[in-house]
């Protein structure tokens, strides 16, 4: 998602894609120093329908198109590596807006009372995984834990500790009322979104990272 400082931007951006609009929102903006998500956003900003993003990105022409779109704002981008940097970049007013992991921005809002706001439209939703290592000693217990963690009532509690959404849509009704508006999976936030394609990045991560680095160095 996109985060900005409400005391810096007079007008609220309506979508993550506004990061490409340097006329309406002049100034430096921050993005994660990686091709993943940025290429998807670039294609969406260039008019590719959400359903076709990975299909287009799977072709050489699509990759060219995404980099060409990123070219338009390249000189205005500050790149971040660690998740702690986006709130820091906003707080030091180094940038006017930044892409970020929503949990980091939310904790800056809640705990440090920063005047930040989050734009959810065109967010990219990512999943974390739980894996059982091969040869695990307590395999049965591990399965029991998976079953427990997958229960809607249990998954719904995650948001109380860090504002990330439960994996199951069934869990949404069980999320505490004061937590729900902070989650990426709140119904209001899931109007326009893209689900990150793990398999695509498993296949193309390495060559696109290399191309991304070559592009950065130009």
């Amino acid at each position: 998602m996109l985060a900005y400082d409400t005391t810096v931007l007079k007008e609220a951006p309506s979508s993550v894609l506004d990061i490409f609009d340097t006329k309406k929102f002049p100034g430096k903006r921050a993005m994660r120093k990686a091709p993943a998500q940025n290429l998807e956003w670039a294609l969406m900003a260039d008019g590719v329908p959400i359903a076709d993003v990975y299909k287009v990105l799977g072709t050489p022409e699509g990759v060219d198109r995404a980099f060409k779109k990123l070219d338009t704002i390249k000189k205005d981008i500050v790149w971040w590596d660690a998740g702690a940097q986006p709130p820091q970049l906003l707080a030091s007013r180094e940038v006017v807006m930044t892409t970020a992991w929503n949990g980091r921005i939310q904790s800056a809002i809640d705990q440090e009372k920063r005047p930040f706001a989050i734009v959810w439209n065109n967010q990219i939703v990512e999943y974390d995984m739980i894996a059982i290592p091969k040869g695990a000693k307590n395999l049965d217990l591990a399965y029991k834990y998976l079953a427990y963690a997958a229960e809607p009532e249990v998954g719904a509690q995650l948001g109380r500790f860090i504002p990330y959404g439960p994996v199951l849509t069934d869990a949404t009704p069980f999320v505490p009322k004061d937590v729900l508006p902070k989650l990426p999976t709140a119904p209001d936030h899931m109007k326009i979104y893209l689900v990150g394609d793990v398999e695509f990045w498993g296949d193309h991560g390495e060559d696109l990272v290399k191309r991304f680095n070559a592009w950065l160095a130009q």
């Binding site: 799977g58 398999e199 498993g202 296949d203 193309h204 390495e206 060559d207």
Partner: peptide, 9 residues
Amino acid sequence: NTRLPGARS
């Protein structure tokens, strides 16, 4: 996949 991008999946 390193030698042949996209081969992994």
